[in-house]
Simulated assay, not measured.
Amino acid sequence: MTIKKKLGMGVVTAALGLALVGGGTYAYFNDTEVSANTFAAGTLDLTLDPQVIFDVDNLKPGDYMLRSFELQNTGSLDIASVLLDTSYSVTDVDNNNGGEDLGDHYVVKFLKNEGHPEGWLDNDEYTVIYEKSLSELSTMTPDDLAVELEDFLWWDYEQDGIPAGGTDYLSVKIEFKDNGQDQNIFQGDSLELNWTFTAEQEEGEER
Rank of each mutant, 00 (worst) to 15 (best):
I3E: 10
K4M: 02
K6I: 10
K6F: 02
A15K: 12
G17K: 07
V21A: 10
G23K: 01
G24Q: 11
F29V: 10
T32P: 00
E33D: 14
E33F: 04
V34G: 00
S35K: 15
T38R: 06
G42H: 04
L46N: 05
T47H: 05
V52E: 06
V56S: 07
D57K: 10
N58Y: 09
L59V: 11
G62E: 09
D63N: 15
D63L: 14
L66C: 10
R67V: 10
R67G: 02
F69D: 03
F69Y: 15
L71C: 09
Q72R: 15
T74I: 00
S76P: 01
L77F: 07
A80N: 15
S81C: 06
T86D: 03
T86W: 10
T86M: 02
V90P: 04
V90I: 08
D92Q: 01
D94L: 04
D94M: 02
N95D: 11
N97T: 15
G98A: 04
G98I: 04
D101M: 02
G103R: 04
Y106W: 08
Y106Q: 09
V107F: 06
V108D: 01
V108R: 00
V108Q: 00
K109C: 04
K109D: 07
F110P: 00
N113E: 06
E114T: 06
E114M: 00
G119R: 02
L121D: 05
D122S: 11
D122T: 13
T127R: 10
I129W: 03
E131W: 07
S133M: 08
S138G: 08
D143Q: 14
D144K: 07
V147L: 09
L149T: 06
L153A: 14
L153K: 13
L153S: 13
W154P: 14
W155I: 11
I162W: 06
P163Q: 08
P163D: 10
D168M: 01
D168T: 09
K173N: 05
I174A: 05
Q181R: 05
F186C: 00
S190L: 00
N194V: 15
F197W: 12
T198Q: 07
A199I: 07
A199E: 07
E203R: 13
E205A: 13
